[in-house]
Design a protein around this nucleic acid. Structure first.
Lengths: 272, 272
DNA sequence: TGTACATCAGTGAACGCGCGTTCACTGATGTAC
DNA sequence: TGTACATCAGTGAACGCGCGTTCACTGATGTAC
């Protein structure tokens, strides 16, 4: 059973660029974090649209203009929250994967464990989740800074798929004629389970290019399923539709995994 | 090939309660619609959070307080827009289904046609879509009035599934042990392809209760897939990930259909 | 058909609120000699 | 180690903006006799 190239559970700490030396630097780092923490609480309480620099400043006992020493604008603060949220989700998924790899569970159970950890995170931080995976805030244009952290989440899922593939447990089949629809970057990500530019990953041998592309395409639909299913529940569309959202989620994830030939044993009536 | 019990393409006109007689009544109806139309334009331009009664009134050349003759509050206007959006989506899906049933396409192609029509609608009205399927507007509690229209959309999808089931083309298998996770209402909806209370539908004989429940569970995951996949694309998460979103969408819908034993022929390399 | 009254649409002013961002400033912390 | 200067955090006032909702009112439309 293969484990990942750059093992799960390894995650650099947030935001620390280099160790702060002077009192000023330490104070700045602390206050930056305090601002984000308060903003995050306001986010959960009132939604992204209602985060106000003035309210955050008020709660911190400072005057509103002082916040501008730390964030050049409201949008910049939002961006920081988005980046943190992506990293937190990736960290949760990563930790869940590490644990389940430790226990040497099969690939289907790994997939389910990672999915559940992401859902749990979403249920605990619904507004933070909505900030990154919900409707975009109009007028806010996500800057380049959010791309890499967003990829971190996908990376964990890709690792599950590529590990299973490397163990020969997948049966991806072509989905469409007319060539692949994923970009090369995604194919590389799934095949290598690493971000190409980072250069940390060593490609896993999954067979020819076509197989890798098929794998990437199926992994992408699994990823879409995961995010979409959580959104559906979080945005209230399961109310009155489902008796037990957790079981409906498991079922949806099992269906998504099926598509790639990965069996998630949820115990149909045949099982104990 | 069975067609639906209460055929597609039948849809009562919006909002008309009874024919207006007096000039006042006609004027009121017209202005109510004008307010909604302008609000809808503002919605598409600036997002739900930024719809303002004052701005709408201004554009209509009336004073802001006059709008309160038509909608008791901003929330009530939002509710009206939500209801209209649900109905419009259902109408689009319904029309697509009617057309494809007319052409006597197979059930896989029907499913794909309905999905594509919903996606097309979403791409044309992204903010309206986000209003109903995106992150909930905080502080806004969806009233009971939105439940029935929301069900209309699901109803069209359920019809595709139950028609296919009635023709013996589906192979639903149990997903989970421990009993069904869908509510009885949903099972009835899929089995009867009608809204229970309405009493218009005649249950299709799909076999025993267990089969109907399995069908409902699979149909639900298909529904979740549809909405989730559209959200994923609309909220920008396919940027840089996929070469052709339309093809990625088709693939995702094919995968969702596979889970119920419904084959959507997208022509893998084996096909022409 | 005509009048008296009731209903309703739209006005304009006001209440009370909060927001993001800028700017000239004071005073504390850090740095170079 | 001590002094002179530069950097930076935080202040307080201000600009200019828009919002939802209420209320007493005028004048037009509808209705009942």
């Amino acid at each position: 059973m293969s484990s990942s190239v750059d093992g799960p559970g390894q995650r650099r700490p947030d935001t620390v660029v280099s160790a702060p030396r002077t009192a000023r630097e330490r104070a700045r780092l602390e206050l930056t974090n305090e601002i984000k923490t308060v903003a995050r609480r306001h986010l959960e309480a009132e939604g992204a649209a209602n985060i106000s620099l003035r309210a955050v400043a008020r709660e911190l006992g400072m005057v509103s203009s002082a916040v501008y020493r730390y964030f050049a604008s409201r949008d910049e603060l939002l961006t920081a929250l988005i980046v943190d949220a992506y990293r937190a989700i990736a960290a949760a998924a990563d930790a869940a994967l590490a644990e389940v790899v430790e226990a040497d569970e099969d690939h289907g159970r790994r997939w389910l464990a990672v999915c559940r950890s992401v859902r749990d995170w979403a249920l605990e931080h619904p507004q933070e989740w909505a900030l990154v995976y919900g409707s975009p805030v109009v007028g806010y244009e996500a800057p380049q800074d959010t791309v890499e952290p967003a990829g971190q989440v996908a990376l964990v899922l890709a690792r599950v798929a590529s590990d299973a593939a490397a163990d020969g447990e997948l049966a991806p089949r072509p989905l469409l004629r007319g060539g692949p629809f994923v970009t090369d970057g995604v194919t590389a990500l799934v095949a290598g389970a690493g971000i190409p530019e980072a250069g940390t990953a060593e490609p896993v041998d999954l067979g020819g290019l076509e197989v890798r592309e098929q794998l990437a395409e199926r992994a992408l639909t699994m990823w879409i399923s995961l995010i979409g299913t959580i959104n559906f529940e979080l945005f209230g569309h399961l109310n009155g539709v489902v008796l037990d959202p957790a079981r409906a989620f498991d079922a949806a994830m099992a269906v998504a995994a099926e598509s790639i030939g990965l069996t998630v044993d949820l115990g149909g009536p045949g099982a104990a």
